[in-house]
């Protein structure tokens, strides 16, 4: 009898461990599905202005008080970078953004976009030393581009067309937006779609 009980406990323990592993794997897979279908990487959901289409045009007041045109034909392309003071990944990307602004300054203008409390934004702008970038606060801008998660970047070319867009979490993903412009492919999905 004791032997049976001991054996039963051991078998049950193994089964419980297996079940826990299975439950965790299931939850993790559900999480991965959400990540895949939500815009992660320079992947995009099919919402907002499509790649190749004309970007919605805006004339916004920057934090410095000057007018910043967005989406109009211009001498340089525009990288619209959506961020917020409360987004840690955005902060991680700021040094990369500054380096990009220097190395790509021949053809690229970087505009930071956010919304919310002006004072908090100005404090953030000063503490993160972002004065070199035009900085606009506009809820309408985020709505027009259907930005749902941060940090989000949109590359608009000199003719005012959206060339690539997506959620960016790393230097590679920012660069992938530029590559997409050079290759003429808008999103990772599109690239994967054509290569198959």
């Amino acid at each position: 009898m004791m032997e049976t009980l001991t054996l039963a406990v051991v078998v049950l323990a193994c089964l419980v461990l297996g079940l826990v592993a299975a439950v965790f794997a299931l939850a993790r897979q559900v999480g991965i599905i959400y990540e895949r279908i939500a815009p992660v990487g320079a992947l995009t959901m099919d919402s907002g202005p499509k790649v190749g289409e004309a970007a919605p045009t805006f004339e916004l007041k920057g934090l410095d008080g000057d007018t910043i045109p967005i989406g109009h034909p211009a001498a340089k392309s525009t990288l619209l970078f959506f961020l917020s003071p409360t987004c840690p990944v955005c902060k991680k990307l700021l040094p990369i953004l500054k380096a990009t602004a220097r190395s790509e300054q021949r053809w690229l203008r970087i505009v930071l976009a956010s919304d919310g409390d002006v004072q908090a934004q100005e404090k953030f702008r000063l503490s993160a030393k972002l004065e070199v970038f035009p900085y606009v606060l506009s809820t309408a801008l985020g709505m027009a581009f259907k930005v749902s998660r941060l940090p989000h970047a949109i590359l608009i070319d000199e003719h005012g067309r959206v060339r690539s867009k997506g959620l960016v979490n790393s230097r590679e993903q920012i660069e992938s937006l530029f590559n997409a412009k050079e290759l003429g492919v808008g999103t990772v999905q599109e690239y994967l779609g054509t290569s198959h």
Partner: peptide
Amino acid sequence: FGLYAAANQLLSNYPRL
């Protein structure tokens, strides 16, 4: 710990859903 990790995964899935 496995259950804790699974519960956390579910907690972080919820806002995405």
